[in-house]
């Protein structure tokens, strides 16, 4: 067979090859995202996602959406611009969550015996679906950044509240009040993570009294819009095909 001949001889064969290619690429992309997005998120979100006693209504709500909208924006840019596929954000988040669960279960629990109810990851799926749907229905990266980025930030806390609410029940312990999450952080000893490293309830967003989470979520949503813009450009740059002219 010469280089100019086709590798397939019939339409059925072409369809089969195309589907095989689909599965290979999806699988490879998924695995790359598990690795790349996971490392990025651990380095930037880190402790806010590792421990229940870091998941507060102020900095967790602010930091996690901002640092996690990065890869979804980039992969959306690639998948939508090149293929008109609106699943970039969801694919990223499912990869991240699978990687995180493997890490939390095998390493945090299986290796160092921290209970899983102390080290579960944050749930990012609702925001990812909203981001994908907004892109698909609008077909505009600008609208996706503004509306989708906003939704990504706003839906984060309510999307996680059913998971963390049981750990925010108060308890009196040796004459002091804790939440159960605080007590987890105190009970399950982290030699390398002293209490003062924990960044919770710090900041000045106290204008609305005890309703801190919505203010933090709005702030996070605004910054998520900006980060979306930035990272969708990265996605575009990395998914360009460039040809070199032969001499």
């Amino acid at each position: 067979m010469s280089a100019s001949q086709s590798a397939v001889r019939s339409r059925a064969e072409a369809v089969k090859v195309s589907r095989t290619f689909d599965y290979l690429i999806i699988w490879t992309l998924f695995m790359v995202l598990i690795g790349g997005y996971h490392i990025h998120f651990m380095l930037t979100g880190g402790d806010w996602d590792f421990w229940s006693d870091w998941k507060d209504r102020r900095l967790w709500v602010t930091v996690v959406p901002i640092v996690s909208i990065t890869f979804p924006a980039a992969v959306q840019a690639m998948a939508w611009s090149r293929y008109r596929l609106p699943f970039g954000a969801t694919l990223c988040v499912l990869g991240l969550l699978l990687g995180e669960w493997i890490n939390r279960y095998l390493n945090f629990w299986g290796w160092t015996y921290f209970p899983v109810n102390f080290v579960f990851p944050s749930n990012l799926v609702p925001g990812a679906i909203l981001l994908d749907v907004v892109l698909m229905l609008s077909g505009s990266f600008t609208l996706t950044a503004v509306l989708g980025g906003m939704a990504w930030g706003l839906v984060f806390y309510p999307g996680n509240w059913p998971i963390i609410a049981p750990l925010h029940i108060p308890i009196e312990y040796n004459g002091m009040m804790f939440t159960l999450a605080d007590l987890q952080g105190y009970h399950y000893v982290r030699t390398g993570t002293p209490e003062y490293i924990r960044m919770v309830e710090k900041g000045t967003l106290r204008t609305f009294g005890k309703d801190v989470a919505p203010v933090s979520a709005f702030f996070s949503a605004f910054v998520s819009i900006l980060i979306y813009f930035l990272w969708h450009f990265f996605g575009n740059w990395f998914s360009q095909t460039r040809f070199v002219q032969s001499t």
């Binding site: 507060d56 509240w161 009040m177």
Partner: peptide, 19 residues
């Protein structure tokens, strides 16, 4: 999301922020 939040609030009506 709204259902989950509502259900959590009714199941755990008393919660406090991290200390």
């Amino acid at each position: 999301v709204l259902f989950g939040m509502g259900q959590a609030n009714s199941k755990y009506p008393v919660t406090t922020p991290l200390q």
